[in-house]
Design a protein around this nucleic acid. Structure first.
Length: 848
RNA sequence: GGGCGUAUAGCUCAGUUGGUUAGAGCGCCACCUUGACUCGGUGGAGGUCCGCCGUUCGAGUCGGCGUACGCCCACCA
């Protein structure tokens, strides 16, 4: 019945099995399953790009082993996939691939077509043209992207594939936003926000990172009234002097106490500003007095807000000094100085103002060079500025202690794997300084489903919002028209205008459980999968994706979005540096799949534990390859023994002991999986497997061929096959291709449609003492050692093996002696009771 | 500044509630072409378990102090 190939091979098996699984619906989600029979996974939708990254392989394969295990446990596994294609990553890619930039003021050009090469210099295109290019590039990318993902052998149900920009996801995103708005969880505000001058968009606290940058302290002289002399301050940003609205010192700083409440005049611009006190000012920094500008950093924002200071904004959204001086700069010399700076970039303005100040003697001493951390948008190239703008926010506890506590508590409801990762969540939520800024001033993304009425004077009335009913979603306010209006009223007095912004990508991806589960579109499905069982993701996006998802579920459903969070580590290169495109040390998995087979790469990936960064190791992949090859060969070998008669059982004590040991592995590996420790499960199974191949199969092969009669052969044959089938099942979550390959040689149907083995059904199911098995291995090793030392073949004959040791050990060992004799080509085996540890005397035939 | 994690063989890492001489794989060395596997098999060498102090009959494991590395959060005039 077995159909074993003459020369088994791993080459090319992926394509065959991927096609077969797709045809047979092997990973099809049974949506009739009750909620308690479902295991739902909130798969991270990867950002669409040209290719798969080795880090993807690492984390997604780990999740896949859990999905496969749960499926084998009888769960209906809901394992959707999605592509995240609506973010800045897509915009950047379109800009680079086609050499274009979006200029919303341009009209649509129906004849526009990109060239084969990117335009250089970049060409400005209209928003509709830009969006068309986004769609086009995404469509091209996603074909190849999906192909490479399928090659990984994930057991996802591809019929649930989604793209975050598609209408259905846009609808989910807009609906959730409108509900947040209706409940007061989302709001609009005009406020200072961190701003990327290259992307020309606001960015959220979660997307910041500090980078060390060179800078310098410059000492500036502010002037007191009359002849009271100067007040000196140090600043790294003299170019913001025109934006200065006050000086600040610590309330307890006696040196400056007399100054507080008085006014001083700024150098160069001669603007009168007050000296104020605030606890955030640090006496031992600089001179102890700092200038407050609107806005140099987030501390300035705090001071400005808490001290109720005026605003003098001088940095435009393009990162240049604005054309007109802010109010307060009234003197002719002051205005002249400002004119020198207007239109310059920050760098240029800094250079120029230093010259101007020095010429006037208001810059003292030499600049003191320093290195200091500067805030950047994580994808950006220039430091962030702070500009005042109208933005949308979702409350996240950053300004409300009660909400913050509630969200911390939600995080603690989740079972984290590993547990300590909850600390990252807690420290992030605990450190929030403001609400979640979700609007972005970008051409491509999910639009805010909001219009504003325009009053009779032509002013936009931001307090007068117009919404679409939910059943009209998704909408684009730049082309759709609110109820009660007509298109020709767009932008007119008494008419309306659409909100120009789009949502940040996290505002949509924070809804992946709702998107994947078809919230509101398919209530029956949603009820079966939400809240989900598992969110797998990497630790760097706990503060963004994970937290945001918790916020949305908390508001919409009053629940956590999933019971478990499995946090994977990162891939480091072999020198333990983080892999990144800029370092040029990125490994692409496709060539590895080709060279070693997907299973081999999966072996490496699943050897990694959750929460632990792992070094990329081609050696580990080679070991995986060896394992897969061994599975092919041992299957071929075992299936080549005479088939035991129907109804035969494993009766030989050695066989029963082996099966009992295997039963222990089955149970322990299941426990490992239940506690999200796939790597330990693999280690356990693998360890048994090599012992099985190296010792057990070697011990019983002669008997299996009939050397000790038909009963012994039948017992060995049964045990070998039971163990082989069990091992194939145990490896199935890790090595899906080779296990289905070897399974198919002697079974109908896929191994991935089978149940996890029943430990109690192995052998007779009765407990068996493992000592005999262990001792047999020990004596076998001694015999091998004797032959190796004598530099003879393992096949060489042995005259006599004499074992001396405690009676209970000898009794246990008795189950293996006959097979040992065959396996070792031993003429005579004797045992003798004695004290102390087991001693083995081996007499080789040559007298060696 | 606060927090989390890691430290075991040349390398990558296991080591569960404390329990004989601390394990695996790779690499290295030697040997064997033994009924499937040379992408194979057998064996060997190789360790002050980061340091110090403590608890204990007993510590790689528990506690304290420290060191190194990585990360998170905060600060950043």
């Amino acid at each position: 019945m077995a159909n074993v190939p003459e020369k088994p091979t791993l080459d090319g098996i992926e394509a065959r099995w991927i096609e077969r699984w797709e045809q047979d619906g092997t990973y099809h989600f049974d949506r009739t399953a009750r909620r308690d029979q479902v295991f739902a996974i909130d798969t991270p939708p990867p950002t669409v790009s040209g290719s798969l990254h080795i880090g993807h392989v690492f984390s997604y394969t780990q999740t896949d082993t859990t999905a496969r295990f749960q499926r084998m446990r009888g769960k209906a596994v809901f394992y959707p996939m999605g592509w995240d294609d609506n973010g800045l990553a897509t915009i950047r890619r379109v800009q680079n691939v086609y050499g274009v930039r979006c200029d919303p003021s341009l009209p649509f050009d129906a004849d526009f077509a990109p060239g084969d090469e990117p335009f250089d210099p970049p060409v400005a295109v209209s928003r509709p043209n830009f969006l068309a290019l986004c769609e086009r590039l995404i469509a091209e990318d996603e074909v190849l992207f999906e192909e490479s993902w399928r090659r990984l052998g994930l057991s996802v149900d591809w019929s649930y594939l989604y793209r975050t920009i598609e209408p259905r996801c846009t609808r989910v995103s807009q609906r959730a936003f409108l509900r947040n708005l209706a409940r007061g969880e989302a709001y609009q505000a005009e406020a200072p926000t961190l701003w990327d001058v290259d992307f020309r968009t606001a960015v959220a606290q979660a997307e910041l990172e500090d980078r060390e940058r060179p800078g310098a302290y410059h000492t500036l002289a502010f002037h007191r009234a009359g002849d009271d002399g100067d007040v000196l301050i140090e600043t790294t940003r003299p170019e913001l002097l025109a934006a200065c609205v006050a000086l600040v010192c610590h309330p307890s700083d006696a040196r400056y106490a007399p100054l507080v409440g008085t006014n001083v005049r700024t150098p160069l611009f001669d603007v009168e500003v007050p000296v104020v006190a605030h606890p955030l000012a640090e006496p031992d920094k600089g001179t102890g007095v700092a200038m407050i500008c609107t806005f140099g950093d987030t501390t300035d924002v705090t001071w400005w807000r808490e001290l109720d200071l005026p605003i003098r904004a001088i940095v435009g959204r393009d990162g240049r000094i604005v054309a007109d001086p802010p109010h307060g700069i009234d003197s002719a010399p002051g205005r002249a100085a400002f004119a020198e700076l207007a239109g310059k970039t920050i760098r240029q303005a800094q250079q120029r103002i230093i010259e101007l100040l020095r010429d006037r003697g208001e810059l003292l001493g030499e600049a003191l060079p320093i290195t200091h951390p500067v805030k950047f948008y994580e994808r950006g190239e220039r430091p962030l500025e702070i500009v005042t703008s109208r933005q949308w926010y979702i409350r996240n506890g950053g300004r409300e202690p009660e909400l913050r506590e509630a969200l911390v508590a939600r995080g603690q409801e989740i079972a984290w794997h590993p547990e300590f990762m909850v600390h990252r969540y807690e420290s992030w939520v605990g450190g929030l300084t403001g609400d979640w800024l979700i609007s972005r001033q970008q051409p491509f993304g999910v639009p805010f489903p909001v219009w504003y009425a325009i009053d009779d004077d032509g002013e936009v009335d931001y307090a007068h919002l117009l919404f679409p009913p939910e059943d009209q979603l998704p909408i684009d306010p730049s082309t759709d028209v609110p109820d009660g209006y007509t298109e020709d009223q767009r932008g007119k007095p008494g008419g309306f205008t659409g909100d120009p912004d789009v949502m940040d990508t996290w505002a949509t991806s924070s809804l992946t459980p709702e998107i994947g589960g078809r919230w509101e579109d398919d209530p029956d499905l949603f009820a079966r999968v939400f809240p989900m069982d598992l969110r797998p993701q990497a630790h760097d996006i706990i503060r963004t994706w994970l937290f945001a998802t918790v916020v949305r579920a908390h508001f919409e459903f009053g629940t956590i979005p999933w019971k478990n969070a499995a946090i994977s580590g990162w891939i480091l290169d072999p020198d333990r540096k983080k892999m990144s495109k800029s370092k040029g040390n990125v490994v692409t998995p496709m060539p590895l799949f080709e060279q070693y087979g997907t299973d081999a790469v999966r072996y490496w990936a699943t050897s990694g534990r959750l929460g632990t960064d792992a070094a990329f190791s081609e050696d580990q992949i080679k070991i995986g390859r060896r394992l897969a090859t061994k599975l092919l060969n041992v299957t071929r070998f075992v299936l080549g023994f005479p088939e035991p008669p129907a109804g035969a059982q494993a009766t030989d004590p050695l066989d029963r002991a082996m099966l009992a040991r295997l039963a222990g592995v089955v149970a322990a590996a299941a426990d490992d999986f239940e506690s999200y420790d796939h790597a330990r499960a693999l280690e356990r199974v693998e360890s048994f497997f090599w012992w099985f191949c190296d010792d057990y199969v070697e011990l019983v092969k002669s008997r299996a061929y009939g050397a000790r009669g038909p009963d012994g052969a039948a017992s060995a044959g049964v045990a070998l096959r039971e163990a082989l089938a069990t091992l194939q099942l145990l490896f199935a979550p890790f090595l899906p291709f080779v296990t289905d390959e070897v399974w198919s040689w002697w079974h109908d149907g896929s191994v991935h449609g089978e149940r996890w083995p029943d430990a109690s059904a192995l052998g007779t199911g009765e407990p068996v003492d493992d000592t005999g098995l262990e001792l047999t291995s020990v004596v076998l090793a001694q015999v091998r050692r004797a032959k190796t030392s004598a530099k003879v073949s393992q096949r060489a004959a042995v005259d006599r093996v004499a074992v001396r040791g405690p009676a209970d050990h000898l009794a246990a060992l008795a189950i293996g002696l006959a097979d040992l004799q065959e396996a070792g080509s031993i003429r005579e085996v004797t045992t003798e009771p004695g004290e102390g540890p087991l001693e083995v005397l081996i007499v080789l035939s040559d007298g060696a």
